[in-house]
Design a protein around this nucleic acid. Structure first.
Lengths: 172, 172
DNA sequence: AAATAACTACCTACTGGTCGATAATTTTAC
DNA sequence: GTAAAATTATCGACCAGTAGGTAGTTATTT
């Protein structure tokens, strides 16, 4: 793993625990074994780092989901697959959704970061609409926003109350 | 309004836009017309201020709701009342729920602040369970966690995408 | 006299960011 | 094939600004 990748990974961990202001160049640098001045070589500003982090997070997230039509074709319910991805973020990583946390802080983020967070949710809503359509939902747009709202909210509350059974109950 | 109340109000605005780290003693002080050192007279530490803020927010929120049984008795659906309180926070204040934002940051908060955020959600779940029970729900506990999850999530996404119609669609 | 509420001055620690320098590597030109 | 040039990735030193917090003082109110 390159230093740049290591920096993004370290930043992701910090942000998913405490938001955009929960990481500093010095902390990241020390974690990957370089000096803070060198971080600016890979990311000119903190906003650049944040934006690239959210962009790659979105891409990985979408890639992990696959295509709703293909999931359906192989006998899986795409909404269950989507729910499972959130569950593993909460249960395995024990962290918030990166864009869930950044979305809540949206108003105080640098423009280029906020833009990437918007992209995450727009892409997610598109994916979920296709998934609900494939499931025969009458109003796939509405079902999509309800699904992602419920999951982000349940994740946040389970983290806050430090009890994953809230997530399980919410997704029953 | 006393200086102390003014400080809490200024802090609430900042936190609801960008989280716990989005306010400083210097900013608050300058907004209410005193010096930053004087803020420490009212709140010994930042954590004390954050905890009192979340505590009062919870109390005001619960007070604004009223009692589920009384709402029911006066012909109102308590879940609609609850939804309306979230809606006005989003549409009128144009800000996140204080504890929704702090909850997402939960892992990086000082203990006494996190404790108050937990109190907010525990009290909300109790209120919502009673409300759903009064509505004749078969599983009021489950309905309660689903209601608050959906509303917190929908609020966050509407803020992020800067479009309140997502909230309206999610709550249909 | 005591409590309240503010002040000035200061501290240490940390923030994102800039600068020029320095090796090591890779590409280009002859 | 090799010498020169450019690129990559790092460094130490430094900067101005801000963070939360403390000590001691002053004025006002009870």
């Amino acid at each position: 793993m390159s230093k740049k990748e290591a920096l993004l990974k370290a930043a992701e961990n910090k942000v998913r625990l405490g938001g955009y202001s929960n990481f500093s160049f010095r902390e990241l640098a020390s974690e990957v074994g370089i000096k803070s001045a060198s971080v600016h070589y890979h990311f000119p500003t903190k906003a650049d780092l944040g934006a690239e982090l959210a962009h790659q997070y979105t891409n990985s997230f979408l890639a992990a989901l696959g295509e709703p039509s293909e999931l359906k074709a192989s006998g899986k319910n795409p909404i269950d697959v989507y729910t499972q991805l959130f569950r593993s973020a909460l249960v395995t990583d024990r962290k918030m959704c990166l864009c869930g946390l950044l979305g809540a802080e949206s108003d105080s983020l640098p423009d280029k970061v906020r833009l990437e967070v918007k992209r995450f949710f727009n892409q997610n809503l598109t994916w979920l609409s296709a998934a609900h359509l494939a499931n025969g939902e009458l109003n796939p747009t509405k079902a999509a926003i309800q699904t992602v709202s419920l999951l982000e909210g349940a994740m946040m509350i389970s983290k806050t109350l430090d009890d994953n059974s809230y997530f399980e109950l919410a997704t029953q």
